[in-house]
Structures are given as C-alpha cells and as structure tokens.
Write a protein that binds this DNA or RNA. Structure first.
Lengths: 107, 107
DNA sequence: TTTATATATTGCAATATTACGATAATAAAA
DNA sequence: TTTTATTATCGTAATATTGCAATATATAAA
C-alpha cells in the first residue's frame, strides 16, 4: 500500500492529476510567479528570493520542467529558465475544459 | 526536513498550492468527474465505479470537502455528495487569474 | 429492539515527497 | 591550467500520502 493505483484510472485522469500535483507546492507556485515577474530568470536568484536551499530549488525546477511548464537555456554559466507559454496556455485550456465539464447542478 | 516550509510563502501561494494538491490525485479527479456525470452521488457507487476500498474513497471525499469543492447531505442511510458549484466557479476564476498573471514571454 | 446497510474513523504498512549537505559537472574568468 | 561561480545529482533524514482492514457510527427496515 501507499502507492497510487494509476492503472485503474484513465490516461487523462492521471495526466490531469499529475499536472495539478506539480502545481501543488507553494515553492513551485512561487517560482512560476517570480519567473514571470522577471521575464527571465536564473536559478541562483530563486535561492535568495524564495529561501530554500539550492538543491531544493533545483529539484522543484526539475518537476516544473517534467510537465513542460518551464524551458531552460544555458546562458553562460547560468541557466535561463522561462515559462513555456505555449504549454502554459495549453494546460490552462485543458483545465478550463475540466472545470466546465465538471461543473453541474444537483442537490 | 521533509516538511513543507509553508511559513516562507504567502497565504495566497499556500492556498493555491493546497487547492492544486487536492486535485492532484487521479482518484479525486475521477470522483469529481463521476459526481458531475451523475448529477448526484452516493459514496457506495464510487467504490464500485472507481475500484478503491470504501475507506479510501471516504478519505478522498474528505479532502475534496476540505477545500469546499464538495458538499454532502445525508439522504436516508446514504450520503448525497455534490459539487459546490459556487466554490467550483470561484476556484476556476482564481486559477485563471493565476494563469493569466503568470503567462509571460521571455527567452 | 434487532438487524442490515452506508459512511466515517482509526491504526498501520508501504511508498512518496520535501529539504538539505556534500559533491559532481559545466563553463567563464583569471 | 587553475580558480570561481552556477546548476545538477546523490544520499539521507524527516514527514506526508496512499490504501486498506477493522471498527465505530448512524439510520432505515424488520
């Protein structure tokens, strides 16, 4: 036990949940907000800005990358992490579809 | 370690993350979809429909209730769980605000 | 009241997540 | 090449989540 039974759900249910899960940590919400405010970003800024260890920030960035929300480019000896706007919009649309479909009246 | 450092984030960041987190499990996505499809619901249906133990379903329902997404009414010896449409719409709006604010171009 | 049915709670084992120090990897600067 | 700066990865401890059996609670039916 303790393991999520992904196999009993549809691919779409797992994908939606995975996406929500990645956004389900305040550090990752904060990272996205900060990056968008800067219009550019290097990881080291985030360590100062957010107040978590460098290893921890790096790990959170990896998760945001895993669902395609961030793209990173090497820029000298830093990384330039940015929001992948296309993916971002795509996910926003999927979310709204989910919300609109699920909305219903009963009771 | 191992504990999320909520105190270093804003209330809004924590709230948004908490909301995403609750939706971040395929069983809870499936529950919401199923309830909305039925326009009414009793927990026992969900056990058959989703294929998790009764105790597990009950726990997931509790989490959905914790962020106000579901409201439950006693109906005879069953429960009638329904989507709280007002809360649902409210959260959809908050999400869109977050998405629109965060969307930006760089790199 | 007793029994049956539906849901909630408790306790626990398995697994996942969070956080961080240490260290590796990479690339610019000296 | 050596040093410095930046980011990634590894290993590990603390905590959280998932799932379920067992049990408690609550209500309808007998």
């Amino acid at each position: 036990m303790g393991i999520t039974k992904s196999q009993i759900f549809t691919e779409r249910q797992n994908d939606l949940a995975q996406f929500f899960k990645v956004l389900g940590h305040p550090a990752r919400v904060a990272i996205l907000q900060y990056i968008s405010k800067q219009n550019a970003c290097i990881c080291n800024d985030l360590v100062d800005e957010i107040g978590l260890a460098q290893a921890t920030i790096s790990q959170h960035l990896k998760e945001l990358k895993s669902i395609g929300l961030l793209k990173g480019e090497v820029e000298g000896k830093s990384m330039c992490y940015c929001i992948n706007v296309e993916r971002w919009t795509e996910l926003q649309n999927e979310l709204n579809t989910f919300f609109n479909k699920t909305k219903s009246n009963c009771c």
